[in-house]
Write a protein that binds this DNA or RNA. Structure first.
Lengths: 139, 139
DNA sequence: TTGTGTGCAAATCTTTTGCAGGTTG
DNA sequence: CAACCTGCAAAAGATTTGCACACAA
């Protein structure tokens, strides 16, 4: 009974009819352990050390399944390919350090509330949103 | 002396050493007249009616020049290629109707202020930001 | 067993670039 | 005239897909 955080996802996935293969387990492990926001190629690199047969195509296919299942979030930042993060944490937005490339997370309930009000005024409800602050260290 | 809004851009560009060619004039006209948020291919299609020799490569090259000059903004929404809009209007963010694909604009000084405060707490100043609300009509 | 998932390679899609010739200021 | 632009076609980078085989449930 290892306290593997990927374990409960695994079961949840199986419950919705998604097969959990060796390759998917490897990717899930890498995703849950990632402290950063890796892109598909980087996830492939990392997961390969757990299962060296894993192909990049499968990484993409799996990521797309996991996104559909609500297990991962795809971040489409301004440059480069998509980056991914597990969706088990509370919702948050991102601050990107333009110089170092570092990605930080933040959350503002006040802003979210204002967003909802703005959307509501136009007769909309928000399905999801993105907010990214591209920043530089203050002098 | 036609009251062409592209005219003053044209001069501003020349002033910073950017050559205003036939092709660039066509693209500028299409951009300033666009009421929507076209992508490169669509801009190419429209500008071709003014200058049928215009190539897609030049559209991309010109858009990148115009972006560097601060004349256009590149929107990297979640799906598909980049979309563009002229930067002569006040700053705003976007609401996307997930069903129709329609893109609307909004601005909230309150939110912008909160964003600045959040960045400042981490020692950052915002260079630019993006906020997109992906919405559906309320029932 | 049977429907899913996978690796590989080829295909897409969007955007960029090398090169030789054309144009702007 | 010199520096800058352009069209074309090929290259690049990211992601998707067809196919025959493999495997989870």
């Amino acid at each position: 009974m290892k306290p593997d955080p990927a374990r409960k996802m695994t079961q949840a996935l199986r419950d919705t009819g998604v097969r959990v293969t060796r390759q998917r387990e490897a990717l899930l492990k890498v995703l849950t352990e990632a402290q950063d926001h890796p892109d598909a190629a980087e996830l492939h690199r990392r997961a390969r050390e757990l299962d060296d047969s894993l192909s990049l195509a499968t990484v993409y296919r799996t990521l797309s399944v996991l996104e559909r299942e609500g297990v991962v979030l795809r971040l489409a930042l301004e440059n480069g390919g998509a980056r991914y993060e597990v969706a088990n944490t509370a919702h948050h937005d991102h601050i990107i350090d333009l110089d170092s490339g570092e990605i930080m997370e933040f959350h503002s309930e006040k802003i979210e509330q204002l967003q909802r009000e703005i959307a509501a005024e136009l007769g909309y409800e928000i399905v999801h949103h993105r907010m990214e602050l591209y920043c530089r260290k203050k002098p």
